[in-house]
Computed example of a mutant assay.
Amino acid sequence: MGQSIIDVENVTFHYHQEASPALENVSLHVNQGEWLAIVGHNGSGKSTLARILNGLFIPTSGVVRVCGIELSEKTIWDVRKHVGMVFQNPDNQFVGSTVKDDVAFGLENNGIPRDEMINRIESATKKVKMEAFLEHEPHHLSGGQKQRVAIAGVIAVQPDIIILDEATSMLDPQGRSEVIQTVRDLNRQGLLTVISITHDLEEASRADRIIVMNGGKKFAEGTPEEIFMLDEELVKIGLDLPFPFILSKRLREAGVPICKKHLTEEGLVNELWTLQLKI
């Protein structure tokens, strides 16, 4: 992992005059090139934090630095040049009548010259495997395809960071898999630092590091393996453990000699297949 690209120091945020803060004294960092998942149940503060990182909200107190720029009313637009965001409902994100027009929208707003715009549209749609759909109308696409187009629109602007704010929660399993694989590929190619905001621990298990939010505070932080060692503590704060992890646990309790509690279906299937070959 590279050096720190986002630093959050003792951030507190209040909505209007509410007595209790949505975020309270939260500190964290994001390393360049990593995939950080921020998880928590509804109301945990994770989406509020995402909006602060993108400059949609300004903290009530504390400091946020993105690519060395301290977030303030004066620097919001400078921060947003470095951070792209994909939201929960893909249908709410489209502004163009075709995929090409939609990907072009952010480029036009940034005054990108036409020749470069054409090259970026072609490159971005190829990266998310949607280059064959440039003339298609977005509302005719599947949910997973829509989110991949939304991601193309973000990466065409060439930010350093992409935030996925529950970007897979409204998708079917195939669409969710498409989006996660797309983001994983972009991250591994070194094109983007990824921050995934989610309540889905199975999705979070794909990340390099996880931060768990609860009641507006940072509850835990670590690698996926370290976080899932908390086991029932995660359930107590309203999170559902991934099915492969639960099944691994139950199989071990039943006497099946599985070496560890797996975070992904692939890992569990591979070990069960290895055991079958040994029998």
Rank of each mutant, 00 (worst) to 15 (best):
A19G: 07
S20Y: 01
A22K: 02
A22T: 03
N25I: 08
L28K: 13
L28I: 07
H29A: 04
N31V: 01
Q32W: 06
L36Y: 11
L36C: 06
V39E: 10
V39G: 07
H41E: 08
S44G: 09
S47F: 11
T48R: 01
A50I: 08
I52D: 12
I52W: 10
L53R: 15
L53I: 04
N54I: 03
G55M: 13
L56P: 02
F57T: 11
V66Q: 07
V66K: 14
C67H: 07
C67W: 00
G68F: 00
E70Q: 15
S72K: 00
K74W: 05
T75Q: 05
T75K: 05
H82I: 08
V83S: 13
G84V: 05
G84K: 03
M85T: 15
M85D: 14
Q88K: 03
N89H: 12
D91V: 04
Q93P: 05
F94H: 07
F94Y: 07
S97G: 10
K100P: 03
V103E: 01
F105V: 15
L107N: 07
L107I: 00
L107Y: 00
L107V: 00
E108V: 08
E108M: 14
N109P: 02
N109Y: 00
I112Y: 09
P113V: 14
R114K: 15
D115W: 04
M117F: 04
M117I: 02
I118K: 15
R120H: 00
I121T: 06
S123Y: 09
S123A: 13
T125S: 12
K126C: 14
K126I: 05
K126P: 01
K127D: 13
H136M: 07
H139E: 06
H140W: 08
L141N: 04
S142N: 05
G143E: 10
G144D: 03
K146G: 06
